[in-house]
Amino acid sequence: MVNQSFTHTLPALRVLENEHRFLTHEMNQWHAIVLDFENERFSREEGLVALQQLRKLVIEFIDPLKNHTEKEEKFLFPMLAKYVGSDQGPVQAVQEEHNEIDAFIGHFLHHTRGDLSQFTLQMMQDVVKDAGEAFEVMMIHFIKEENIIFPMVLSVLRANEQEELFEQLYTSILPES
């Protein structure tokens, strides 16, 4: 992974930015398999193995993703909503994207549970599209948060609120071993 400097200096935003980078790294692991399906690089047998690996990687991704989004929904969004509202606008939009991401991942996992041995290569390519959509929504979502939501934190939250947010966000998103 390329060593990049942080965009933001505010500790709370560095926590979230670091989580975005970790999640992006993890997503890239399973998105490579999605791209191989899209580019028709698998025979049916190779596809079955790849689909099982993709499912495994997506399942491993869920806990860190959930831990990250729950922190945003519990701490970041309500704090911003006090100033900018939550019925419309950017806070509502990013919250809706969390639901959209969950739906794509849930749909993928639902359709890949159980015995996959009867799947044709076309069925595999079709079901993998949900994982690809989840990836696309997440990438746009991270960019939106970093370019719209994060600057809002800097412009509307008072210094003591920014410190409180850091204390709330400074927890690991990795599942406990």
Rank of each mutant, 00 (worst) to 15 (best):
M1Y: 09
V2H: 06
S5D: 12
S5A: 06
F6E: 06
H8A: 08
H8N: 15
L10N: 15
P11E: 05
L13A: 09
L13M: 09
L16V: 11
L16N: 06
E17G: 02
E17C: 04
N18V: 00
N18P: 00
E19L: 01
H20W: 07
R21D: 04
L23E: 05
L23Q: 05
T24Q: 14
E26I: 11
E26C: 07
Q29V: 13
W30M: 09
H31C: 01
I33R: 13
F37E: 04
F37V: 08
F37M: 04
E38H: 11
N39K: 15
N39L: 10
N39T: 11
E40I: 04
R41Q: 15
S43H: 09
E45S: 11
E45G: 00
E46T: 03
E46L: 09
G47H: 04
L48P: 02
V49S: 06
L51W: 12
Q52D: 10
Q52M: 10
Q53N: 14
R55V: 08
R55K: 15
K56V: 00
V58P: 01
V58K: 09
V58S: 10
E60V: 02
E60Q: 13
E60S: 09
F61I: 08
D63Q: 11
P64F: 14
L65D: 09
L65G: 00
L65T: 04
K66V: 06
T69S: 12
E70L: 13
E70N: 11
K71V: 01
E72I: 02
K74Y: 05
L76Y: 07
L76Q: 08
L76A: 05
F77A: 04
F77V: 03
F77E: 06
P78A: 06
L80D: 11
A81R: 04
Y83E: 14
Y83H: 15
V84Y: 09
G85C: 02
S86A: 13
S86Q: 12
G89H: 03
P90K: 05
P90G: 01
V91E: 05
Q92H: 12
A93P: 00
V94I: 15
E96C: 01
E97T: 02
H98A: 02
N99S: 10
N99M: 07
N99I: 05
E100T: 13
F104S: 08
I105S: 03
I105D: 08
I105C: 13
I105M: 14
F108T: 08
H110N: 14
H111G: 00
G114I: 07
D115C: 07
L116T: 12
S117R: 10
F119G: 01
T120A: 01
Q122V: 04
M123F: 01
M124S: 03
M124V: 06
Q125Y: 02
V127I: 12
V128Q: 07
D130P: 00
A131K: 10
G132K: 05
E133Y: 13
A134S: 12
F135Y: 15
E136Q: 14
I140H: 13
K144R: 10
E146R: 11
V153C: 11
V153D: 07
L154F: 01
V156C: 03
L157N: 08
A159D: 14
N160C: 00
E164K: 09
E164R: 12
L165R: 08
E167K: 14
L169Y: 12
Y170C: 03
I173T: 15
L174A: 14
L174P: 00
P175N: 13
P175W: 12
